[in-house]
Design a protein around this nucleic acid. Structure first.
Lengths: 149, 149
DNA sequence: ACTGAAACTCCCGGGAA
DNA sequence: TTCCCGGGAGTTTCAGT
């Protein structure tokens, strides 16, 4: 991963549909050279793909919440992935330091969907209790952190 | 926002660099027809843009944290956006119900970067105290929630 | 449908191991 | 020499009107 690739990635983050020629002009490479590098990065998994950036409301995901989960004893990330991976509303899971064992980001079409998801989270394995913070308004949401996939 | 547009968006979420013709074949439209619809959705802001999906580590954002912030009195989303928008490491901000007033997602290149960001968050305006949960491992990170921008 | 432009695929040249 | 990487031209496909 050299600086040239970083430049190309930076360009693609700002405009995922930029032409290879356009990128090439920006970084000082020919279009085929850019394509080769992009193909390589895709093959290596450094670029997972390309996606449209969509207002979540458009997709019908109206409500979201952050659920802190507190577990019995130790939690392995693998177990978490296994237990929570089957819940479609679960969009993000990260084990964290501090009070909680993990933070789960949930998105659903309605409050009932959030409730059901939290219920499923509770039911899954070692979860002792949860603490839910429902999002009232999303103030900042930057593309700096691509969500992977 | 009709079903046809939803189909098109769905296709673009899976492949942000799909050609209009390819999308047209999938949804039963001609390429120009697809383009007109996509242009309209972009103009309306339903599609905010297109971006590459990148492994965050590749960009040098090695460490992330969730910072709950507790404020004096009321917090307006606008004020939050103004105060926190200038901190580049701040990737997500959402006002929430529950204990905290808002949850801030921070990504940085190092723990020092996280620390500096939290310091800046504290310094900005009405923040009374913060509670930081550093991410140990990101277990699930789904593309279902496009990150906006 | 038509025009211009971009993508894709060769093959070639130069520099480093 | 061998391998890697970038440049260039021809062909096909796509974008835009």
């Amino acid at each position: 991963m050299d600086d040239l690739n970083r430049l190309i990635v930076g360009y693609l983050l700002r405009d995922g549909r930029a032409t290879f020629q356009e990128i090439g002009d920006a970084v000082g490479l020919s279009a085929p050279a850019v394509k080769r590098r992009v193909d390589l990065m895709r093959a290596r998994g450094e670029i997972a793909g390309f996606t449209a950036v969509v207002d979540p409301h458009v997709l019908g995901w109206e409500i979201e919440a952050y659920v802190e989960i507190f577990c019995h004893g130790n939690v392995s990330p693998d177990a978490l992935a296994r237990d929570l991976g089957t819940i479609p509303e679960v969009v993000e899971v990260a084990t964290v330091t501090g009070d909680a064992d993990a933070i789960v980001h949930v998105m659903a079409a309605s409050m009932a969907g959030i409730e059901a998801s939290v219920e499923r989270i509770r039911a899954s394995g070692r979860v002792e209790r949860t603490r839910t913070s429902v999002v009232m308004s999303r103030v900042i949401d930057r593309p700096a952190r691509p969500t992977g996939g």
